[in-house]
């Protein structure tokens, strides 16, 4: 589209504009807004009482399992995009290859299911 400049340059300009908007608006609002902190106002939110736990919680391991599953499947998805884009050209050969790949992944998926990684108790 733009022969003189790479097609990624507009993305970078937009990025600079967006970052600029974010930072400058915060800075300008710093000049006009009131600033009157006191300890009660700065305490972590709790409904009408003093907080009795901190925000440094132990994280349930479930979330970690979900992130692992996400990594597996998202890598698969990324692998499938280029395949989908050229699927019409590669025909049955491409189909069989991707089918085998999906089957291998399904084995892992069934294993995760059987082990209870997909349950939320």
């Amino acid at each position: 589209m733009y022969h003189a400049i790479s097609e990624y340059v507009p993305v970078l300009i937009l990025l600079a504009l967006a970052v600029g908007f974010g930072v400058v608006t915060l800075l300008v609002s710093f000049l006009v807004r009131p600033n009157d902190p006191y300890p009660d106002k700065l305490s972590p939110y709790e409904c009408g009482i003093d907080p009795f736990t901190t925000g440094k919680l132990q994280i349930p391991v479930r979330f970690f399992v979900i992130v692992m599953l996400f990594l597996l499947f998202d890598v698969e998805a990324v692998f499938m995009y280029p395949w989908a884009a050229v699927y019409k050209k590669i025909g049955w050969y491409g189909f069989v290859e991707m089918f085998l790949f999906i089957v291998i992944l399904l084995v892992g998926y069934i294993y995760a299911w059987a082990k209870g990684a997909l349950e939320w108790e």
Partner: peptide, 11 residues
């Protein structure tokens, strides 16, 4: 929202 005080909790 622009004119509102900006609160950063101490934790």
């Amino acid at each position: 929202l622009f004119m509102k005080e900006d609160i950063v909790p101490y934790e």
